[in-house]
């Protein structure tokens, strides 16, 4: 066991892999190649997001109206604060990672162990935050109505603030029955029914004269267009099709369904990278504790996973910009 760890057999012979082109070891160079290819995968996703966004440039959801929540502070709006916190956590764990690499260069086992542990904790906080962010996004908080054309109608009060469906709609007894697999088309069912029916929403809307409808269209001031009362009612009655609460891959209450699709796909793929990064970091952490790299005489393995971990941070910087800021 010890001999395999100490001598990798690649150190002396040029043709045995001992040669180091570009002054980088085999593993490090391959990690760089992997990072380039993975960066291109993420660019593909983000470019596709940009494509859809340019396609619907006049009606895309405004990100800081969507991501306004901070854990434990219910009902208050803090646009972007929590995502900024997540960004900071990830940058911070990048810092502890690079400190671990630095300690590795000095063969300081205790410090490498400590910094690897901190990196893992940072990664776990980030993944947890992302799970919370997803849960909040899926649950939604205001509710909206989807039209026949697939557009989203949201409700606002006289000051332009969003109004929850629960604040003006009274749920009646439902006579619509959820479609189950055993009825009609075989093996086709539908998700849970929304709390309210379209008729109840219209009734609630009629009894609250100060509520208006906000469409997806962005006006010349960069805000969503709010319709007049009569237009709102007409739009709701002629085009309103179903009540939407929260978000999934088919519909979302924030605007075009593509927004939620890309959100789930890109942040999900990134979250998966963070998760696998944490798993790899844990493996390396235990190898450090067991003294594997101490015996090998080099902490280069820490450096290689470090490259991967920084790459995850690098991708987040771009996801943060294109999903939350721009």
């Amino acid at each position: 066991m010890d001999t395999t760890v100490v001598n990798t057999g690649a150190d002396e012979k040029t043709w045995g892999g001992g040669n180091k082109p570009l002054n980088a070891s085999y593993g490090k160079m391959m990690m760089w190649f992997f990072i380039v290819s993975d960066a291109l995968t993420f660019s593909g996703f983000l470019a596709a997001y940009g494509f859809s966004r340019f396609k619907f440039i006049g009606s895309w959801p405004i990100a800081d109206e969507v991501f306004t929540h901070v854990p434990f502070l219910h009902g208050q709006e803090f646009p972007m604060i929590y995502v900024a916190f997540m960004t900071f956590i990830l940058i911070m764990s990048s810092v502890t990672m690079v400190l671990a690499v630095d300690a590795g260069h000095h063969m300081n086992k205790a410090k490498v162990t400590l910094y690897m542990l901190l990196t893992i904790i940072g990664g776990l906080i980030f993944v947890g935050s992302q799970a919370w962010e997803w849960a909040t996004f899926i649950k939604g908080d205001h509710g909206a109505v989807q039209t026949k054309g697939g557009n989203i109608l949201q409700f606002v009060d006289a000051d332009g603030h969003r109004v929850k469906l629960a604040d003006f709609v009274v749920a009646g007894t439902h006579d619509r029955v959820e479609h189950e697999r055993k009825n009609g088309l075989w093996f086709v069912d539908e998700g849970a029914l929304p709390t309210y029916t379209m008729d109840e929403v219209i009734a609630g809307f009629e009894s609250h004269p100060d509520i208006a409808i906000r469409t997806q269209d962005i006006n010349e001031h960069g805000h969503k267009t709010v319709l007049s009362r009569s237009e709102s009612l007409k739009q709701l009655k002629t085009n309103g099709k179903k009540v939407v609460e929260g978000a999934n891959l088919h519909v979302n209450e924030y605007g075009t369904s593509l927004f939620a699709d890309f959100f789930f796909f890109i942040t999900g793929f990134h979250g998966f990278h963070v998760f696998s990064g944490v798993v790899i970091n844990i493996i390396i952490f235990f190898n450090v504790i067991l003294g594997t790299y101490e015996r090998r005489g080099s902490y280069e393995m820490v450096e290689k996973v470090g490259l991967y971990w920084h790459f995850v941070d690098l991708v987040w910087v771009f996801v943060f910009t294109f999903f939350y800021l721009v």
Binding site: A39, L40, S43, A47, R53, F54, K55
Partner: peptide, 20 residues
């Protein structure tokens, strides 16, 4: 990376803009 990303971005954003 920069060359391929710039190329892809140019094509997709151009196309998205056209469809818009």
């Amino acid at each position: 990376a920069i060359f391929l990303i710039a190329y892809l971005l140019f094509i997709l954003l151009q196309e998205g803009d056209y469809i818009e």
